[in-house]
Write a protein that binds this DNA or RNA. Sequence first.
DNA 1: CGGACGACTTAGCAGAAAAAAA
DNA 2: TTTTTTTCTGCTAAGTCGTCCG
Length: 756
Amino acid sequence: MSGDHSHNEDQIDCGSRVNDSHKHKDKYKEKEHKHKDHKKDKEREKTRHGNSDYKDFSDKKHRDKEKEKMKHKDGSTDKYKDKHKEKRKDQKMKSLDGKVKKEKENGFASPQHLKSEPEDDFYHSPKHDKSLKRERDDDNDSEFKPKKIKTENDKKVKKRKQEDENMKSKKTKKQKGEVTDGKKKAKKEPEEKWKWWEEERYTDGVKWKFLEHKGPVFAPPYEPLPSHVKFYYDGKQMKLSPEAEEVATFFAKMLDHEYTTKDIFRKNFFKDWRKEMTGEEKAIITDLKKCNFVEMSDYFKAQSEARKAMTKEEKLKIKEENERVLQEYGFCIMDNHKERIANFRIEPPGLFRGRGDHPKMGMLKRRIRPQDIIINCSKDSKHPEPPPGTKWKEVRHDNKVTWLVSWTENIQGSIKYIMLNPSSRIKGEKDWQKYETARRLKKCVDNIRNQYREDWKSKEMRIRQRAVALYFIDKLALRAGNEKEEGETADTVGCCSLRVEHIKLHPESDGQEYVVEFDFLGKDSIRYYNKVPVEKRVFKNLQLFMENKEPDDDLFDRLNTSILNKHLQELMDGLTAKVFRTYNASITLQQQLKQLTNSEENIPAKILSYNRANRAVAILCNHQRAPPKTFEKSMQNLQTKIDAKRDQLSDAKRELKSAKADAKVRKDEKSKKAVETKKKAVQRIEEQLMKLEVQATDREENKQIALGTSKLNYLDPRISVAWCKKWGIPVEKIYNKTQREKFAWAIDMADEDFEF
DNA sequence: CGGACGACTTAGCAGAAAAAAA
DNA sequence: TTTTTTTCTGCTAAGTCGTCCG
């Protein structure tokens, strides 16, 4: 239990988060651009959180101003990080200390590395692989190791045994093994749920030995519009070339979306659209405002109506076709097991929609063709054939990576991949591993915390910055905050990239001392707003970091994620900034469950407690969502139900009363019985009422909170499984089907006394 | 040795599907 | 049934982090 110390408590209450944007309007309004050298000053409006009043930080603008050097009392050299900002300004001070830690190679962030040797033959015979199979994370998990048979009913035990047996034989022959061993091939059923978690893992960076798949499913080709659907330019009908028409339809489909009204979106779209036009078209179409896409738009709306109105036979047919495609392309064979592929369909062309104020919104995301595609599979598999008359860009055989297909996307120039489903071995192992790393952090987090507190006093500025940043990451679960290239993406930040303008210091606020007010846009342009009291030393340090800086200067000018992670790596093997999020999320869930679950309560009430614990985590991690469009209405409906139930309750009470009176007079068995019945009715209704009220509360509290992200990515599923087992709650109440597939390993291995 | 790049995880949302209500 | 509401799934953008390379 080294992990749960008071500090955790803080996680739950780590500041007063206010989601409501209004409170904050005007905030940045005033700043004016002293240097308006910035190209992007234009309208960047709000994100949904702030709506237009959240006048954004647009002006980070001139981060180009040359920053003068501020001197820091500790005399260390100058800033370390102006870098990317002004396009690599020039100064590159290097930090004088070079702690370079050797890095670990294999993908498993755990100790014990075995050097990966060059290895020229990927497909060496199954026979001699192995030997070192490393068990999941060294320490402590012996408890979850393959099977110790817990007392279960015979049937189960038997089955287990048999499985063990299988396993054994499999192990010896490993890969080769069951291809032959069973006619299972015949039947669809993948040999009844493969328990990969009971097998050994690769240790040397090899991700698989055999991989075969059918390649991607391409987006359907463009179907030209019927001739009665016209496009008008400047009032005059105009027939577009197929290429130009296709791009026009992308715009037409988004016509009622608000971003077709945004300047950047329109400008980017128009520019890319023109590239698709023929010479004549280009000559004529020079102003987007004169384009009339209404008929096209109406046509698509009609189409979608028609689709909805299809008969069920037609719908069924489509469904069957989809199923067929899924069966054919949705699976691959990896090391003798059939595994589900996550995204086997290539992204269709369209207009790029970034999140937040994205400088590239509206650009044309081009169609991906076979010649853009790289196929990855094993040499000894039959690789997928490109569609007739086309070629793949490349077919490679790299078993050090997990992807099956990749291509380069044209908006940011990044690579996209087709990979396996979360239920696959390859994803599951990694996920499991992630939680094991977080559990290792639990063991040393106290030391780490003591150390960073010490570091607040360091005389080296870089150390202090690092220590304060780490404190934020730990206490507030902030993301690391890599630097981003300006102008390529929306302006968002994480811990290391916070700027002075993102925090405000209040020596005293609402009766608390040393309060820091955070307000910035994080991943996906989700606003993070929080007011949190910090320790005095932290506060003083922040004042120091902010001295002589402009609002758009980096708060931690001598820190970046790579420095921070290098440091963390020294504190614990495999430790990086994001491990803190995982750790704090999971430990918070565990502790909240402990605290909130009331053994007396019934299942729905316990589930409510679970949701509350989950919610505490979501709040910690700032997982927000847009309130559902129908939220108000659905709240109202619920309220109506509650009112109705209330009336029903008072009626029932009235009846009970009269029954009592009646019984008093009559004193016969029958009337007594009637009283009992009424009493029961009242009770039942009270219970129902309570349930509704609880539901209303739950829903209201959840208005802007998204529970899914934490459940899927941050909470060790074994905590939830153990909780379910402990209280006799069916896991289906907590995890739906896909989630159960993803967490099959946890459901299988955790028992009720699992401790994170 | 820092920055670009590659691989992989994490994220919210829109639309489909399922469930509940009418 | 059909319609409405809720839940789930697919999609793909946007992060993190390690490594490769000039």
